[in-house]
Design a binder for these strands. Sequence first.
DNA 1: TAGTCTGGGCTTTTT
DNA 2: GCCCAGACTA
Length: 726
Amino acid sequence: MDLLHGLNPQQRAAVTAPTGPVLVLAGPGSGKTRVLTHRLAYLVRELGASPESVVALTFTNKAAREMGGRVQALLRAGGSSDSSAPRPSLGTFHAFAARLLRREAGRLPVSREFVIFDESDQQELVRQALKELNLDPKQVQPGAVHAAISQAKNELQGPEQYPRGTYFAEITQRVYVRYEELLQLNNALDFDDLLLLPVRLFRQEPELLQSYRRRYPHLLVDEFQDTNTAQYTLLRLLGGEDPDLFVVGDPDQSIYRWRGADYRNVLRLQQDYPRLQTFLLEQNYRSTQTILDAAMAVIDRHPDRTRKRLFTERGRGQALLFHEAYDPADEAAFVVDTIAGLVAAGEVEPGDCAVMYRTNAQSRALEEAFLKASLPYRLVGAQRFYGRREIRDLLAYLRLIHNPSDQVSLLRALNTPPRGIGDKSAAALLAAAASAGLSPGELLLALARGDPPAAASSLPPRARPALEAFGAMLAGLIATAGDLPLDRLIDQVILEAGFRPFLDDGTEEGADRWANVLELRGVAAESSAVGLVEFLEQVALVSDQDTLTESVNAPTLLTLHAAKGLEFPVVFILGLDEGELPHHRSLEDPEAMAEERRLFYVGLTRAENRVIVVRAFRRRVGGVFTASDPSRFLDDLPADLVEGDLLGMGLRAQASYARQTRWESPAPRPIGPRYAMGMRVRHPSFGEGVVMETMLHSDDEEVTVEFERGGVKRLSASVAPLEILE
DNA sequence: TAGTCTGGGCTTTTT
DNA sequence: GCCCAGACTA
């Protein structure tokens, strides 16, 4: 089979580009995964690269799995490989880095058995550090300090380089120092370390870097716009001066700025590699032209970007639908009714519909509406499976068995289920362990063995029996862990710790909790071939989307963030209100506002056939009902692409504007923008000026010009007598 | 030590 | 309005 068969000319050009730095700017639905997988196969099948010399990095496990499946099919179609053949390294940045670090653990401050601390473990460490530094967690928010530390790590800043100067920075710097010590004491690395440490290793040990460069001469990266400084630097190091680096991304879909992602890495790439070849994928295979036009109108308001002209062969399709509801409950009812109506009319299956919103809190009203109508739904995210308390409790035991020095897990497991070891006993244990120079876990094990160090005598007699019992249980579990498959080990933990009666207390929630534990056991049973280390790593590096099951034929409820990378025939976007989308926390910061816009763009471009945007006349802000203003983004939807009750002020204004322009001048549809930012223009009455912004509607171009006299004016290109100067 | 009460705060969350 | 953390009480 021809590898290039079925690729469009743009895709084909990218796939067959000469090796070297390559950037593919891929619009939504333009087949970027296809390009990436075909490029990989092209390297192997046509250019003779060995599969194991290729690294392909993604951000989610799901993307990695998808790519893996397609790559395997392509390579097998090439006839070259059987199941035992070498395979490319294909995985998330974090998984790739974690593997590297285990391999090179000898060069690290932690042992090869290190555990990976997630968000909430990290918070816990910050809390602990604050406490040790006698800082009141009410005055210094642990979350804020943690975010600052995480950001520093993403920027490759260690505690020594952390800038001081403000009170907060001073506090953060001190917490950061202690935080790092605590990680090491726990024999743990956090998410950020997984990226930061390889960079540090490579910088410190040039020979090591050389060996990895030889090992992986071919690099491919998905969702490049989401890379942060650490990831970018890692790629630069691995690539060297003249890399074979093939990256695919879309700056318009960059929505993780707050996690350190910087779409400007795309521009950096152009500066760092003058030889960079750039390809644009503009043909869309997902949406109708109407949806694409609406989405472009929204995103084209961003200045300073490579404009993409998204087009499709699918035809114009139906107009977007706008609806203004009274309040969130009414909004949700509208969604349920509309879906029910579409289904009844035979237009769609329930599973074709997705309902997207800015914040998880908005799912509540929806869930209630679905429940009320007794219709099923699928909820993505919200309470992440691995974030659930009972799951974390059980995992704490497994982590402890694997790494008794993990103090965060120990403190969690110690009195869960309650066994009479309260704060006092726990504090005494920590103190005794510190003076004995052991981790608390090790002290407990020593206690259980009957050879306690002298410092153990400081433990209050009342606390001792319970601590000894816990130590004995832990010792027993550790002893049997090696012989048992994972699911049996979990059974053992459940039994000895007494989880079942603790969780399954007869209430409905209790039954849910127990069901969750059984689900974890099921996951373990499936991966019982892998050891405890691999299982824990797997579990630490999973995400929400990984738990999204496709089997149920019901509408999907999810945040706009969670929607990235997915597609649905019918998409509802809720809460198009100022303060909601854009979110009120983004109103002040232009960069944050730009990201809100991209978020809306991501939502729109998930849709294949229909988009329904909804807002509510009044919302509750912190318990109080307030009248809300329609989102500014509604104004950017070209009025002639939208139907519905046009109660939103912006849309109403635009509707009359559109009527006017269409009545007075049926302008020919521009093929591309005639004006560009920075262009000098002249107007007979306003004089000369500079184009600030230009926005393409489906039948007109709207130009914002700053005139030397007369200020800023927004003009319709088809009507205004603008003259372009040199 | 364990259960109940009160008050603050509240985006998004690929790994 | 809801949830979590820490304080308070039995």
